[in-house]
Amino acid sequence: SKDAAQYVYDEAQKGVTQVTVNGVTFKFDNWQKLLKYAQKLLN
């Protein structure tokens, strides 16, 4: 959902490398990768 994507995006902006959405945890090597993933979700 857009809300989940926005949440992931906001978390990535904080510099975190993992985020949990609806009980599913996504882990990334660095926050830039998390940010890229979030941007994909938002598009």
Rank of each mutant, 00 (worst) to 15 (best):
A5R: 01
Q18A: 07
D3P: 09
Q13P: 06
D29R: 10
D29I: 14
A38W: 08
T17P: 07
L34V: 01
V19R: 01
A4E: 08
Q6P: 04
K36F: 05
K33G: 04
G15W: 15
E11H: 06
K27D: 11
W31D: 00
F28D: 02
T25F: 14
G15K: 08
V19P: 03
V24G: 03
K33Y: 05
A38K: 00
Q32A: 10
Q6V: 08
W31P: 00
D3A: 02
A5E: 06
Q6W: 13
V24A: 04
Q13M: 12
T17G: 05
Q13L: 10
G15I: 15
N43S: 05
Y37K: 01
Q18I: 12
T17W: 13
L42P: 00
N43K: 13
A12T: 10
Y9Q: 11
F26E: 02
G15S: 10
Q32Y: 11
K33A: 12
Q39C: 15
K40T: 07
D10S: 06
W31T: 00
T20S: 11
Q6F: 04
V19T: 04
K33E: 13
F26K: 03
A5S: 10
T20R: 07
N30M: 11
V21Y: 02
G23V: 15
K2F: 15
N43C: 00
Q18V: 10
A38G: 01
L34T: 00
T17S: 04
K27L: 15
Q13A: 11
L35R: 00
K14T: 10
N43E: 13
L35S: 00
K36R: 04
L41K: 01
F28V: 08
S1H: 14
T17Y: 14
A12L: 12
Q13N: 11
G23E: 05
D3S: 01
N30I: 15
K27A: 15
V21W: 03
L35A: 00
Q6Y: 03
W31C: 09
D29H: 11
F26Q: 05
S1A: 05
T25E: 03
K27N: 15
V16Y: 07
K14F: 11
V24W: 13
N30G: 10
Y37Q: 02
F28M: 06
Q13T: 09
G23H: 07
D3F: 08
F26P: 03
Q13W: 13
Y7M: 11
L35G: 00
V24E: 04
Y37E: 02
N22S: 11
Q39K: 03
L35F: 05
F28Y: 04
Y37V: 04
N22K: 09
G15Y: 15
A4Q: 10
Y7T: 15
V16I: 06
T20D: 04
Y7H: 15
G15N: 08
L42A: 02
E11D: 10
A5D: 10
V21D: 08
W31L: 11
D3E: 03
L34H: 00
Q6L: 12
K14W: 14
D3N: 04
F26R: 05
A5T: 04
N30K: 04
V16M: 03
D10G: 08
G15A: 06
D10C: 00
A4R: 01
Q13E: 11
V8Q: 13
L41W: 04
K36P: 01
K2L: 11
V19M: 10
Y37C: 12
L42H: 01
Y9L: 13
L35N: 00
A4C: 14
K2M: 05
N22V: 15
V19I: 11
E11W: 14
K40R: 03
V19S: 02
D10P: 05
Q6I: 07
D29E: 07
L41Q: 01
S1R: 02
Q39T: 06
Q6A: 04
V24H: 03
G15H: 12
F26L: 13
Q18F: 09
Q18P: 09
Q39M: 12
L41N: 01
A4P: 14
G15C: 15
W31N: 00
D29Y: 12
Y7I: 13
L34P: 00
F28A: 03
E11V: 14
N30R: 10
K33P: 02
Q6N: 02
D10W: 14
K2S: 11
Q32T: 05
G23Q: 05
Q6E: 12
A12M: 11
A12E: 07
V24S: 07
K33F: 08
Y7N: 10
A38M: 12
L34A: 01
K33R: 05
L35I: 05
V19F: 07
V21M: 09
A12H: 06
G15M: 12
Q13G: 10
Y37G: 00
K36Q: 06
N22A: 14
W31I: 05
N43P: 01
T25Y: 10
A4T: 05
T20K: 04
V16S: 05
K27Y: 14
L41E: 00
E11M: 10
A4F: 13
L35E: 01
Q32H: 10
Y7P: 15
K36M: 05
N43H: 04
D3K: 00
W31V: 03
A12Q: 08
K40P: 01
G15E: 07
V8P: 14
T20L: 14
T20A: 06
Q6M: 03
K14I: 13
V21H: 08
Q6S: 02
V24T: 04
E11T: 14
K36H: 09
K27P: 09
L42Q: 01
K33D: 14
Y37N: 02
K36C: 13
W31H: 01
Y7G: 14
Q32V: 05
T20E: 08
E11G: 03
L35V: 02
A38C: 14
Q13C: 15
T25A: 11
D3W: 08
N22W: 15
Q18K: 07
K14H: 11
V8D: 11
Y9S: 11
N22H: 09
G23N: 02
K36A: 12
Q39A: 04
K40F: 03
K36G: 07
K14Y: 05
L42T: 01
D10F: 13
Y9V: 06
Y37S: 01
G15V: 12
V24Y: 09
K14S: 08
V24I: 05
